[in-house]
Design a protein around this nucleic acid. Structure first.
Length: 271
DNA sequence: AAAAGCCCCTGGATGC
DNA sequence: TGCATCCAGGGGCTTT
């Protein structure tokens, strides 16, 4: 589910409400991807100072240390003052003086990990290899051109790998490549500078637009206030196999790349 | 070093 | 109603 826009939308939907809250206790359900790696009593009494995002990770800054939260494929967060009992798929609850944060994650590919600080081995193991933030000032066309020149794999898979740029997942990779007019199977290193510049702009605009729209709700994504996203309604190619391309009317095609579905318009997107 | 495959897990949709 | 199969927004790990 959650790519950069969904994680950012989630962050914005509870960051202000949880800021300054004191942790009362934490509760885990079934195991998530990794063990939390902390003595839960170290969390008790600490305040949540801020909520940041790095790639698809939510970073909850505490007075001493931080919690890294990943939503995996099916995760969503809810922050509520009167949440009721944890549901079957609520596998992490953070009870605070200002409300309860819950991670709902049926598939349990998500994770909650404690790290003493951002440079610690625990944090670096997860964040260390992440590429540049696509919506930040550091995402520059020149550097992006250089990064792609080194990769011979299909551009779609290079985007998903998250080393050249972070946060672009399966939906937004297909969408950005459509906007840029690039066939997903084209080898990254073979793209001209002009086309990489188009892709750079496309990634920024599609992600920014998706954030504006509250993310994509395909099945069950919602932000921490329970609100759905709307970007899926304006997807150009994702999930539209066999339907007419909105630009030229040609039928949208789907292929498999690295065990993931890719969608593209064979006319609008050139090899 | 980079690329390709496999796997973790549950649930919903589809087909028989 | 039941059962089997396939698919799903991610990404770490192992093997080529």
């Amino acid at each position: 589910m959650p790519e950069l826009p969904e994680v950012e939308v989630t962050r914005r939907s509870f960051a202000d409400r949880i800021a300054g809250a004191q942790i009362e206790f934490v509760e885990f359900g079934k195991p998530l991807r990794w063990p939390p790696d902390c003595d839960l009593t170290t969390l008790r009494g600490q305040r949540v100072m801020a909520v940041r995002r790095r790639g698809k990770y939510l970073l909850l800054d505490l007075e001493r240390g931080m919690l890294l939260v990943h939503l995996g494929m099916s995760g969503s967060v809810a922050f509520s003052v009167a949440p009721g009992a944890p549901g079957k798929h609520d596998h992490f609850s953070l009870y605070t003086s200002q409300g309860v944060l819950r991670l709902h994650d049926p598939r349990r590919f998500g994770a909650v990990v404690f790290a003493p600080d951002e440079d610690s081995p625990q944090a670096q193991k997860l964040l260390g290899k992440l590429g540049v933030e696509p919506l930040g000032d550091d995402f520059e066309p020149d550097e992006f051109v250089r990064a792609l020149k080194q990769r011979k794999a299909p551009i779609k898979q290079v985007l998903l790998a998250g080393e050249a740029v972070v946060g672009v997942g399966n939906i937004y990779a297909s969408e950005a490549l459509f906007l840029a007019g690039i066939r997903p199977t084209t080898r990254a290193a073979r793209l001209s500078r002009a086309r990489v510049e188009r892709l750079h702009a496309a990634i920024r605009s599609v992600l920014a637009r998706a954030v504006e729209q509250g993310g994509s709700t395909l099945r069950d994504f919602s932000n921490a206030q329970g609100e759905s996203g709307h970007f899926q309604l304006e997807a150009a190619v994702y999930g539209r196999a066999g339907l007419a391309c909105r630009a030229c009317g040609t039928l949208v095609r789907t292929i498999r790349q690295g065990q993931r579905s890719t969608f593209f318009c064979p006319v609008c997107q050139k090899p």
